[in-house]
C-alpha cells in the first residue's frame, strides 16, 4: 500500500476541513466560541466577587476558546457522519479545557473553588502549592490545553477524511 505523502495528508485534511465547515457549522463554531468565552469569564467572576479579573492575557483566552470550539465543531460533524460514541464525547475535551482555563485564570489570592476542596480532605498546604504552581505556569498550562485541543481536532478531522466516512 502506497504511503501517503505529507503534502497529500495536508491536502486531504484541508479538503475535509473545508467540507466540514459548511455555513451551518461555521455558525456552530462561532456560537460555541462565544459560549466558551462566556464560560471562562463566568468562572473568573465567581472566584473574584463578580469581577472579571484574570492574570491570563486576552489573546490566550480567545486562542483556547477558538481551539476548543474548533474541536467541538469537528467532533460534532464526525459524530453525525460516523455515529460513534467516541466522536460524540470528544467535544468534552474542549469544554473541559475551557472550564479548567476559567478555574486557573480566576485563581488568585483567594480561590473559593479550589479551597472548597478542603471539604473533601485536601489540605490547604496542598491547595496553596497547587495554586502557586498554576500561577507560575499559567501560560504553559494554556498553551498545553490549546495544543491538546488542536491535536484532537486534527485527529478527528483525519478520521472523517478517510475514504470510508468522507464528508460528501
Amino acid at each position: 500500500m502506497k504511503k501517503e505523502s505529507s503534502n497529500g495528508t495536508i491536502r486531504r485534511l484541508g479538503a475535509a476541513l473545508r467540507q466540514v465547515y459548511s455555513p451551518k457549522y461555521i455558525l456552530l463554531n462561532i456560537v460555541t466560541l462565544a459560549a466558551y468565552v462566556a464560560l471562562f469569564y463566568w468562572l473568573v467572576s465567581v472566584q473574584n466577587n463578580g469581577l472579571e479579573i484574570t492574570v491570563v492575557p486576552s489573546y490566550m483566552i480567545y486562542s483556547l476558546a477558538a481551539a476548543s470550539s474548533v474541536l467541538f465543531t469537528v467532533t460534532t460533524r464526525a459524530f453525525l457522519l460516523r455515529r460513534s460514541k467516541l466522536d460524540a464525547s470528544a467535544g468534552a475535551i474542549g469544554t473541559a479545557a475551557m472550564f479548567l482555563g476559567g478555574l486557573f485564570g480566576g485563581c488568585g489570592c483567594s480561590a473559593p473553588i479550589l479551597f472548597s476542596l478542603v471539604s473533601i480532605g485536601i489540605g490547604t498546604t496542598g491547595i496553596v502549592s497547587f495554586m502557586n504552581a498554576v500561577s507560575a505556569n499559567i501560560f504553559l498550562l494554556f498553551s498545553l490545553m490549546i495544543a491538546i485541543n488542536l491535536f484532537a481536532a486534527i485527529y478527528y478531522l483525519n478520521r472523517i477524511s478517510k475514504s470510508a466516512c468522507k464528508v460528501r
Binding site: T124, T125, M131, S135, A136
Partner: peptide, 8 residues
C-alpha cells in the same frame, strides 16, 4: 507571579 503561603 502570585505566590502565597498558609498560616501554618
Amino acid at each position: 507571579s502570585l505566590q502565597i503561603q498558609t498560616p501554618a
